[in-house]
Amino acid sequence: MITAGIDMGSRTVKVVFIEELKVDGAPQLKWGVKGKHIMFPDELDADQAADKAFEDALKGAGITRDQVKKVVATGAGRKQVKFATSDVTEVGAGARGAVFMCPTAKTVVDVGAEEGRGVKANAEGKVVDFAGNEKCAAGAGAFAESMSRALQLSLKDFGEASLRSDKTIPMNAQCTVFAESEVVSLIHSATPKEDIAKAVLDAVASRVCAMVRRVGIEDEVILIGGMVHNPGFVQSLKVALGVDKVLLPDMPEYISALGAALIAAENNA
């Protein structure tokens, strides 16, 4: 049986197909990833974006729509996926996917483009406690992206640059708009780019950490979402949380879509 999860994020659409496995002697390996696909929509029509991403994902995985028994949508635009059988919140999907990837993880930190959140999950991947920030982007990937543009660095260089700094420059602004003006002030005062990059990522980590502390930090901590690809942020988060290790799963930006696909499979079983 094949099921699908589709994560309609604010920047990208992610699709994951999973299929039932029959592995003798390893009953825990019940589901395997059949295919995954990410799309950066170039137009604002969410309905079309969902359809196109799904069709492309089907082609990529070499399967037909009829073979997919159930589709569960998640993410900020989950209600706009018209062909989905049902939908789940990004909190529930993220927790399920994260625990599937790292069964020892209890604290899930999800930092996507639009929002960051802290989630405490149980061994089955069910949410026990969660907190997000509904108000602003200052604890999310879009903020880091905006600041990297202000520094005229690619996102990759931005993350790597921050690792070269050992300075701690506090960013006082809580809002992305004001933070950008703070960054401009730092540029004008000839502060090295790597120090500014670290200051920005420390600020994002500090805001994310406030949400995680609200739910409580329990070993082990797993980070999911696109910010996993930013090594500077991962380092800043470790320091902010006061932990030695943060688990970084494979295909981090697909974890919520994977969680949705798992929920589809489990509810269909």
């Binding site: 969660f130 997000g132 602003c136 809002c175 739910v215």
Partner: peptide, 11 residues
């Protein structure tokens, strides 16, 4: 489940 709705800002 404990669901926390809201935000943290400068105030």
């Amino acid at each position: 489940m404990i669901a926390n709705y809201g935000y943290k800002d400068g105030s």
